[in-house]
C-alpha cells in the first residue's frame, strides 16, 4: 500500500515539476507547482513527517502560492520569448548531467540506511508536539532567527514594491498642503469626534456661533462643516499662519 502511494506521489511530483518548467503561461506554471507541492506533502507523510507535511500544504501550497498568483495577475502572463539556442540545448544537457551525478553520489554512497526502511519508529516521531518541543528547547536560536528573518523580508518587500512618488510633484507640495485654508477645528479633538455640539461650542467661543441652527430643518452632518469653512475666515488665517510656521 505504501509502495503504491509512493509511486503515485513521486510521479505526480515529477510531472508537476516538469509542468513548472514547460508551461508557457506563468499561471499554469504556478498551478503545476501547487500540484507538485501537494504530492510532495504526501511523500513527507510517507516519511512520517506529519508536521512538515501540514506546514507544506498550509504555508507553501496555501499562502506562498496565493502570493504567486497575485503577482502573476499583476504582472500579466506575457508570452515569453524563448531563450537562445545555446541555452535551450545546453540547459537540459546540464540538468541531465546534474541528475546522473546526484544519483551516483546518493545511491552509490556507502550509507547503510539507503537500502533500509529507516530507523525503527518511535512514538511521537515528527508530530507537532515533538517538533514544537524541539523548536523551543534545542533549536530556539534558529526559531528566533527565523522570526526576525521573516520580519526583515516583509519590511523589505514593502520597501521594494511600494508606489514611489516621482519627481513631477516636488514643487513644495508639503508646504502647499500645510498652507491651505482649513476649518478652525482642524487638528483638534472635534475633527475626530465629529459632533455638531463640539463644532458649535468652538464656533461660539470664537464669536461665530450665530450661524448654526440648533435643531433646524436640515439636521445633516454636512451643513455645519460647510458653514464653518465659510464663516471661519479669521481662525483659518490664523491656522494657515501657524501651518507656515510649522512648515518653516
Amino acid at each position: 500500500m505504501s509502495d503504491v502511494l509512493f509511486f503515485l506521489a513521486a510521479i505526480a511530483a515529477i510531472i508537476g515539476a516538469v509542468g513548472v518548467v514547460a508551461a508557457r503561461n506563468p499561471f499554469y506554471a504556478v498551478l503545476a507547482l501547487v500540484c507538485h507541492l501537494v504530492s510532495l506533502a504526501a511523500l513527507f507523510l510517507l516519511l512520517r513527517a506529519e508536521f512538515v507535511a501540514a506546514a507544506q500544504v498550509v504555508v507553501y501550497a496555501g499562502a506562498v502560492m496565493v502570493l504567486y498568483v497575485f503577482v502573476v495577475a499583476y504582472v500579466g502572463g506575457a508570452e515569453e520569448i524563448r531563450s537562445g539556442n545555446t541555452m535551450r540545448i545546453l540547459g537540459p544537457l546540464f540538468a541531465a548531467a546534474v541528475a546522473i551525478e546526484l544519483c551516483i553520489a546518493l545511491l552509490g554512497s556507502a550509507l547503510s540506511g539507503i537500502n533500509s526502511q529507516g530507523a525503527p519508529y518511535k512514538l511521537g516521531f515528527g508530530t507537532p508536539a515533538q517538533i514544537g518541543k524541539l523548536f523551543l528547547t534545542d533549536y530556539l536560536f534558529a526559531f528566533e532567527v527565523a522570526s526576525l528573518l521573516l520580519l526583515v523580508a516583509a519590511i523589505g518587500a514593502i520597501v521594494l514594491a511600494r508606489r514611489r512618488r516621482g519627481l513631477e510633484d516636488d514643487d513644495g507640495s508639503i508646504a502647499r498642503v500645510i498652507g491651505e485654508r482649513r476649518p478652525s477645528y482642524t487638528g483638534t479633538m472635534a475633527e475626530g469626534a465629529g459632533t455638531r455640539q463640539v463644532y458649535q461650542a468652538i464656533e461660539a467661543s470664537r464669536g461665530g456661533g450665530g450661524s448654526f441652527e440648533v435643531g433646524g430643518a436640515e439636521p445633516t452632518e454636512r451643513a455645519p462643516a460647510v458653514t464653518a469653512s465659510e464663516d471661519a475666515e479669521p481662525p483659518a488665517a490664523v491656522a494657515a499662519g501657524e501651518g507656515e510656521e510649522a512648515g518653516a
Binding site: F6, A10, A13, I14, A17, V18, V20, V21, H36, L43, L47, S83, M87, R88, L90, G91, P92, F94, A95, A96, V98, A99, L102, C103, L106, L107, G113, I114, N115, S116, Q117, G118
Partner: peptide, 21 residues
C-alpha cells in the same frame, strides 16, 4: 529510502534545467 533520494535528485535537476532555460 534510496527511492526517495532518487526522486529528490530528479526534482532538483529539473529545477536546475528550468533556471537555465
Amino acid at each position: 529510502l534510496g527511492w526517495y533520494l532518487a526522486v529528490s535528485a530528479i526534482i532538483f535537476s529539473i529545477g536546475v534545467g528550468g533556471v537555465l532555460v
